[in-house]
Structures are given as structure tokens and as C-alpha cells.
Amino acid sequence: MAETADGDEADLDAFLEKFRGAQRYEGALSPTNWEQEFDQIPMFMKKAPSEIDPKQNPDLACLQSIIFDEEQTLEGNYRSALNDAIAARKLKPNHLKAITRGALCHLELKHFLEAMTWCEEGLRIDPKEKTLLETRTKADRLKRTEERDLRKAKLQEKREQSQKDALLKAIKDRNIKLSPASSKEDTAVSEGFAEMSLDGLGPESAVNAKVCLDENASLTWPVLFLYPEHGQTDFISAFHEGSRFIDHLTVMFEELPPWDVERKYLPSELELYFEDEERAEIYQIDTETTLLKALQHQRYFVKAGTPTFLVLVKLAPFSKNYFFGKKVHQLK
């Protein structure tokens, strides 16, 4: 008997050991990260993720689908109930229960004016009907809130449109040209200026950067510098039109970047160019000039709302190779 008892105890220890070591049961929570893993279980989540990937969270995606279907079903039920109420009133116009149910359905469907109308019709039958009185009050409050929000949205839209129109006028008054590829019609030009942004350009700091008209009626632009020799870029989110290029280059290269292993990107040794894509030509810009003057060049076209310039080193072998076979308009 003793041997049997010892054997059973050994079997039990071996069984329990599976749950202590690497052979823990499938789906077990990690001893070190169990709280984080626990929060990933849909039933115990404190906050649902903003986006649900069905592959990563199939259970949560399934629940979301069920909730959506229930919401759709709920709305369908209200519409079905409303149709029943309408049908009942055709048979008996003063059917108070049908009127009350119809008013509630209109309220849930956000038909606030219709809900108030049904309540008024019911209250002419029974002026003290509590549900109709409460529903009318709630519908009236929600209707006023909806109208207020609509007024605010229209006012904001009008304000934004006014700002866009002022911005467009400021750009046109300065004889700054938009890229022909983006301006097939005057309407397209207006929309192009209004929606100038750098979404998806690349650098994180560039996202949502736009040309702006400040309180002093001056323009600030997002500007991109390209260093073709090293495949690098620099981005200035707010380049004032009255600022000189050399001032920005001096700050940017106060400390030489790690990719400039030859230490040749000194502000005094840099040259600035822009490319005329339509003619496949390159123009040099004086680094002492302002952004506004550069943008007013007869062959400069702002593309995607982002003035872009090439930065090269004077007399560098790469520069000579880069310009080979291209028509370059050097400064005189």
C-alpha cells in the first residue's frame, strides 16, 4: 500500500510540474506579464482599441460586428414600430397608445420635430399624459441642441472658407504660382491652395504642415531641403517668407550632420537650386535671398504646397556629375 501511495504522489507531482515549467497549459497567462495579457481579453478590457485588427483580435472584432448588427437591428425595430403606429392611426386616428409609441420611435430615430408633432396631437386628446409631456420636452431640447450644433458647424465652415480665401488672395497677390499639374481649372487651384498639406510626405514633422497667413498678413511656408548627394532631407515647418535661406542654413549646419563625414557642408560653401520639371531645367538661387523672392521667380511653381530646394556643395565632384547633361541656369 505504501508503494502505491508513493507512486500516486509522484504522479501528482509530475502532473503539477507541467504547469510550473515550460509545459504550462495552452493559453496560460504569463507569470510576469499577466496583467497586460489580462487587459487584452475582450471581456476584461478597460478600454477598447481605436482600431481593431481582425487578425490580431478576432474575438474583439467578432464582438464589434455583433454590436453593430444589434445597433442596426435596433434602428430597424424602431422603424418597424413606427410603421405599426402609423398603420394603427389610420384605423383609429385618436389611438393614444399608438400616438405615444410613434412619438417615442420618432425620438429614438432623431426625428425631433416629428416627435414633437406627435406629442402635440396626443396631448390634445389627453393634456396630462406624462409620457407625451416628457417626450415633447426631451425632443424640444434635443432639437434645439441639434440646431445649435448645426449653426456652429456652418459658422466654423464659413470662418475656415474666409481664411482660405484670404490665403489664396495673399498668394495670388504675390505672384506665386502653383504647379500646373495641380491647377487644371480655377476651382482646382482654389482647392489646391486650400488643401495644401504634407500628409504622407515622409518626415513625421511634415504631417499637417501648411502654408499660413499670420496676423501681420505675412506668409509662412513648409519648406523641404533635399541633399541628393547623401539622400537626406531637412524640413522647416514654418519658413517665414521674409527670411533668408542663409539664415536657416547657418542654424541647420551649426553642427555638421553625422552623414557629412567629409565635413564639407559649411553654410558658406553651399549652393541652392530648384528644378523646373516642365522644362527639365535647373535654376540656382542666391542663398542671401528671401523665400518670397525665390517663390516669385518666373519659373518657380509651388508643388503640393511645399516649396522644395536642392542643396549642393560648391565645386564638389558630385555636383558636377549631378548637373551633367542638364541645363543649369547659374547665378551671374
Rank of each mutant, 00 (worst) to 15 (best):
H240D: 07
E281L: 03
E121F: 14
K143V: 05
E262G: 02
N77P: 03
L295V: 10
A153D: 06
A85M: 02
V211S: 01
P58W: 04
K172P: 14
V302H: 04
A238K: 12
C105N: 06
E275Y: 10
K46N: 15
S218K: 10
L91Q: 09
D234W: 15
R263N: 12
F245C: 01
P258H: 08
R101N: 08
K327F: 07
L63E: 13
A61W: 11
W259G: 02
A81S: 11
E3F: 11
R136H: 06
L201I: 01
I246N: 09
P307C: 06
D140K: 03
P222L: 00
F239A: 11
R244F: 03
F253P: 09
A88C: 09
A209T: 10
K143R: 11
P222H: 02
E26A: 07
E70M: 06
K327R: 10
A209K: 12
E255M: 10
E70W: 12
Y273N: 07
M196E: 10
S182D: 11
E278G: 13
A115M: 09
L292T: 12
S237C: 09
A238N: 05
E9M: 13
E254R: 05
A316V: 08
G102L: 07
R101A: 04
K158I: 03
I67G: 03
A88T: 15
Y78L: 10
S197C: 04
L82Y: 08
L224G: 00
N57Y: 07
I99H: 00
K210G: 00
F274D: 04
A98N: 01
L107A: 15
D199S: 07
R299G: 02
T73V: 05
Q64I: 02
A188P: 02
K90S: 04
T287A: 13
L213G: 00
L82P: 00
D260K: 06
E191G: 12
L224H: 05
A206R: 00
E160T: 10
K320E: 09
V189F: 05
A14E: 02
F324R: 11
L226F: 08
F253E: 01
S218L: 10
L12D: 09
A294Q: 00
G76S: 05
Y273S: 04
L226N: 14
L155V: 06
S30T: 10
L178G: 14
K152A: 08
G325T: 01
D59T: 04
E241T: 04
T32F: 14
Y227D: 12
Q36C: 03
K110P: 05
L266C: 02
V189D: 03
P127K: 13
K332G: 04
G231D: 07
W259C: 08
M45P: 00
A217F: 09
M252Q: 15
E204G: 00
L63G: 08
K110Q: 07
A166H: 11
